[in-house]
Structure formats: structure tokens, C-alpha cells
Design a protein around this nucleic acid. Sequence first.
DNA 1: ACCTCATATCAAAAAGATTTGATGTATGGT
DNA 2: ACCATACATCAAATCTTTTTGATATGAGGT
Lengths: 104, 104
Amino acid sequence: MSDKRVEAARIFKALCDPTRLAVLDQLRSGEKCACVIQEELFVGQSGLSYHMKVLCDSGLVTSRQEGKWTHYSLSSSGQEKAMALLEALTTPEPEAIPNCACSS
Amino acid sequence: MSDKRVEAARIFKALCDPTRLAVLDQLRSGEKCACVIQEELFVGQSGLSYHMKVLCDSGLVTSRQEGKWTHYSLSSSGQEKAMALLEALTTPEPEAIPNCACSS
DNA sequence: ACCTCATATCAAAAAGATTTGATGTATGGT
DNA sequence: ACCATACATCAAATCTTTTTGATATGAGGT
């Protein structure tokens, strides 16, 4: 249970930063290497590297090494996991009680 | 565009804190007032109030005043919005290019 | 072997989020 | 009117995340 919360926090934290959202938006048009991503962003090299790590750790993005370059792309399995988690966290249980009994 | 990112950050930030995730879990079993939520949590009164504000601001939770009590519940429209946003942020564009041209 | 380029890691500073305790506000009971 | 209860708000302290600049690593090219 608490494990699940740690994982949820890791995934959704990836989505809480404007720089990372901008990166995701870039990756929507296909795989990109770090240098290309950086060109369109106001981040230093080490800053981008940090954000890419957060994105990869969340599972939403995967990386692929090719020579000197690291290529990043959206992970569809990461997306599915995140969607399923979000749904699980915010869907009421079937036997949910409509009103709180506390004021009666 | 940047507006959308601010909103996304607000929504997903709500899901990044273990206390708030515990609150959501409680609300899955139905509407609850603050005092009931607090009973099962290690938070002070003002701390809970802060977290409930974050959750309400995200749209994932709605509140209803009844006399002295504030009742909180999961918002299905908030859930739908969050799901749609998550999907939009992490789905590749149809014409996405499989490989980055940077190393060629 | 040496140099350069692409990226990762580290540590300190800066910015942001959360906790805590005190105080404010609104409601209902007497 | 006064008091108690249920929350909300505020400000200071604390904790976490992000930024920044310096240094490290690892792959090619010469």
C-alpha cells in the first residue's frame, strides 16, 4: 500500500515540472536525443540531464544509447501504467457511501 | 500551451504527496468530512486543511459545506479531466518519427 | 595515447513545498 | 451575547526539489 504510494509519487512527480512537460511535448513528435531536446529549452546541460533522469525513473520515458548520444522516447508501457494508477487512485469503490455520517 | 502546463502541474502535484494519496484512498470509500479524515492520519488540523486545499484546487476533490462541517469527495469530472490530460501529455503524435536524426 | 564531444554526476545555492503553532472566521448551541 | 466546535489562514521553521557550475565518464576520431 505504502509502496504503491511511493511509486505513484515518483510517476506523478515527473509530471509536475514545466520543463519536463515541455520535454514530454517534444517527445510526442518522436524520439529525440538530449542535444536536440536542449536546443528548444531554457535549461543547462546538467539541468536537462537531471530532468531526463526524473522522467526515465518514472517509467514514462525510455532511453537508448547510440554511440555518444542518448535517445529518449515516450514509453507506451509507462503511459499505460500511469493511466491505470491514476484511475485506481481516483475511482470510488463500488460500495462507496454517498454521504459522510459525521454530522448526524 | 504554457497555461496547460501550469494546470497539469497543479493537477499532478496533488498526487505527489503520501498524505494526499492517503486522503484520496479514504475518499474512495465515500464522502468524508475533515475531522473523520484526520482521525486516520498523522497530520495536524492545519496540515490537513492545507492538503485538502491542494486537492480541491486540483479539481480531483470537491467540497461541500454543511453547517460547521466540510465534506470532501472524489470528483468524477476531475478524474476525467486528469485522465484526459495524462493521456494527451504522453501519447505520441500520429505522425511521430521513430528515430532521432541527430546522429546521422 | 590524446583530444573532443555528448552526457552524467556531484555539491552548493536557490526556489518551492510541507509542517507546525498561533490566530482568525463562521456556525450552532446555551 | 457568549462559548465551543470545525475549519481556514498566516508566518516561521524545516524539508525537498531544482538550478548552477565544476568535474567525471565514456565513445569516437586522429
